[in-house]
């Protein structure tokens, strides 16, 4: 490990908006917990993702400077791991499990239905910015396959109709 002294300049202004500073608090706390050492990168990115909803470019630069990690390495780590997103999420998020149990239980058909019924493809956000659709690799709720997460709430034994209806409600139209 490298000997890490004080970070170069921890008070870099990320944005003039004061709201942002509040969101940075969790990020700063995480980095300080690890004394701004480079190995805190993944934990810090988790903190950024949690407080900003995604990895904003300015924040990535700030993290890189504070932890003394090369910019390209920060980007490399951010894109290697699928938990991180570089795009702002939609208002709501729907995660469909594509683990083995859920796939065998028919989650592929749910994704097909979403594509056909709502025109949403996994990994993307609807054009109205309302819904982001993601796929997961097993939520650990295989007993309830097919499973999904609607805005953080795990729901089991899904079927296409149920999912289409919930998404339709989010987007403000009925089926």
């Amino acid at each position: 490990m490298k000997d890490q002294g004080a970070p170069p300049e921890a008070s870099v202004q990320v944005s003039s908006k004061s709201v942002e500073d509040r969101r940075l608090r969790l990020v700063n706390r995480t980095m300080q917990l690890y004394r701004n050492e480079a190995h805190a990168l993944i934990e810090t990115l988790h903190a950024v993702q949690e407080s900003f909803g995604y990895l904003e470019e300015d924040v990535l630069k700030y993290v890189a400077r504070t932890l003394r990690v090369p910019l390209s390495r920060v980007y490399a780590v951010a894109t290697f791991y699928h938990s991180f997103s570089l795009k702002p999420p939609g208002e709501h998020t729907c995660v469909i499990c594509m683990g083995t149990a859920c796939y065998i239980g028919g989650s592929g058909a749910i994704l097909d239905a979403l594509r056909e019924g709502e025109g949403i493809v996994s990994g993307e956000t609807t054009s109205d910015g309302k819904v982001s659709l993601l796929v997961a690799r097993c939520l650990g709720s295989c007993g309830l396959a097919p499973a999904g997460v609607f805005d953080g709430e795990v729901t089991g034994k899904l079927d296409s109709e149920h999912v289409l209806e919930r998404i339709g409600r989010w987007r403000g139209h009925e089926h």
Binding site: K61, P70, L71, S72, R73, V74, Y75, A76, F80
Partner: peptide, 20 residues
């Protein structure tokens, strides 16, 4: 300088400079 690194993974990996 560590200008280069590699983004993504698997078949979609690509070398990048700085923040891509």
């Amino acid at each position: 300088a560590h200008t280069w690194d590699i983004m993504g993974r698997g078949i979609t990996s690509r070398v990048i400079t700085d923040l891509n």
